[in-house]
Design a protein around this nucleic acid. Structure first.
Length: 431
RNA sequence: GGAGGGGUUCCCGAGUGGCCAAAGGGAUCAGACUGUAAAUCUGACGCGAAAGCUUCGGUGGUUCGAAUCCACCCCCCUCCA
């Protein structure tokens, strides 16, 4: 059963490095095992960078194992230096504690807590570090670590070698804390496998070594590859910033759109990473797309699957509803109820008062958040890239917002759907 | 504690008295071409509709004029102790 899991993970390209490679398949096949992955609270929500590990926990659970999601209430107070170019600023304990609670809830949506023996659990490393005193830490944990070995780790090397950067003792200690987590989870929960992103390799092997020394236990590690894009730009960022898992930060519609915009060169790989679709199905889809000319179907499948995983069926249908309405080019087909629904569904929207319009369109659209500055709106207006209810508006109208936004041209007497560029929409409702 | 090197517009990085709102690259935004893809080409890119206003770690100073010179302060890095 479980060596089948490993084979599938490999086929998906999800296995980057394995510690204990020779024995891992047999160990997994030998029964229901406990594994963990850590998520540090660096914000009040995880972003899609955490999606691969989260789904990985689920993949293991579906294969009969027991996942622990560790939320780093302690490590989040320290900051992981791994492959970070600079020292990070510390957040206050109460802020981190608040984020821990948010992440707990978020993480919980991806794993099953009602699965009998393989039921998932959320743990917090603050539980076993908060009460520890410095001397115990130094004598019982720190003594097992060789600084000579620690400074050899790739993850901190650039910080140690690079001119203009540095590494505080605090962040340097991060590795020890995370290693201690592994040994504690091994002791408390018989957890014997840690998974994480490839940047976590140094921390994971540190934990493996410590667990062997203090518990005398052989434990395993597995890392997933860094998600890259074919064009070399960073995955997970877009014009409007990070793609978050929290619907309040990134609406299901924006989330769906993000995946829909995946490049052809990346989409089949992403399907393997981010969905539970069988590899053979994905390969078949790739084949079909290649044989057909024109637009591939893969992006739509990817967007649908991932949006459903993160936002559920409701989030998905809201996202699809908006997408359909906006990109079908048939605004006329929308009813007044549809507009109300779009706003409900998370289409960026705001209320407009005809009697209190700003002096210029640039002001109006900038304030609505459609562009970062008036210059961008100006540029768009000058290129006929602003459409109000599907009618192009030119730069000459900039000083006369009242001409564009008048009661007569409002759809259903109250709606203005403004499009800036190809993809940015904003709904104004008279109020 | 000592010596040296740094802090420039989102990032990297030029700029050492006026020609600097500040080269170049990246990112980003818009246009063309397309398939809400990529690549390519074009334009924008401190704020402002404009007049104009505000920037080069901070505070003062020199000067007709300072990112550039001076003083003090803050922060970072390297080496020595």
């Amino acid at each position: 059963m479980s060596s089948a899991l490993l084979a599938d993970l490999r086929a998906r390209g999800l296995v980057f490095q394995v510690a204990g490679e020779d024995e891992l398949p047999a160990w997994l096949d030998g029964g229901s095992r406990t594994l963990y992955c850590g998520f540090d609270p660096t914000a009040d929500s995880l972003h899609i960078g955490s999606l691969v590990p989260l789904l990985m926990l689920r993949r293991f659970q579906d294969a009969g194992h027991r996942p622990l999601a560790l939320v780093g209430g302690a490590t989040g107070l320290i900051g992981d230096p791994s492959f970070k170019a600079q020292e990070r600023q510390l957040n206050t304990p109460d802020v981190v504690a608040g984020w821990v609670e948010k992440l707990k809830a978020q993480v919980s949506r991806f794993i099953d807590f009602e699965a009998g023996e393989r039921s998932a659990e959320v743990v917090n490393n603050l539980d076993w570090t908060a009460g520890m005193d410095v001397l115990s830490f130094l004598r019982d944990v720190g003594k097992h670590f060789s600084v000579n070995a620690m400074i050899q780790k790739e993850s901190v090397k650039q910080r140690l070698e690079r001119e203009g950067a540095g590494l505080s003792y605090t962040e340097f200690t991060y590795m020890i804390l995370q290693s201690y987590d592994f040994s504690e989870l091994n002791r408390r929960h018989n957890c014997s496998l840690q998974i994480g992103g490839s940047d976590q390799w140094g921390n994971i092997t540190g934990g493996i070594d410590l667990t062997r020394r203090v518990n005398g236990e052989k434990v395993f590690g597995l890392t997933m590859p860094l998600i890259t894009k074919a064009d070399g730009t960073k995955f997970g960022k877009t014009e409007s910033g990070t793609i978050w898992l929290d619907a309040r930060r990134t609406s299901p519609y924006a989330f769906y759109q993000f995946w829909l915009g995946t490049a052809d060169a990346d989409v089949y790989r992403f399907l393997k990473y981010f969905t539970f679709l069988p590899v053979v199905e994905i390969d078949a889809l790739e084949q079909a797309d290649a044989e057909r000319s024109g637009r591939p179907e893969a992006q739509a499948v990817l967007a649908r699957e991932v949006t459903r995983l993160v936002h559920g069926d409701e989030g998905l249908s809201a996202a699809q509803r908006i997408t359909e309405a906006l990109f079908s080019g048939e605004l006329g087909a929308l009813s007044a109820e549809d507009f109300a629904q779009l706003r409900q569904d998370g289409l960026p929207a705001s209320t407009l008062s005809l009697s209190a319009l700003p002096d210029t369109l640039t002001q109006l659209l900038t304030e609505a958040g459609m562009a970062a500055s008036g210059k961008q709106v100006k540029d768009a207006l000058g290129r006929n890239a602003v459409l109000v209810n599907n009618a192009a508006v030119g730069w000459d109208a900039n000083a006369e917002p009242a001409r564009v936004f008048c009661a007569e041209s409002a759809l259903f007497g109250r709606y203005f759907l403004v499009r800036l560029g190809k993809k940015k929409y904003h709904l104004f409702e008279l109020g």
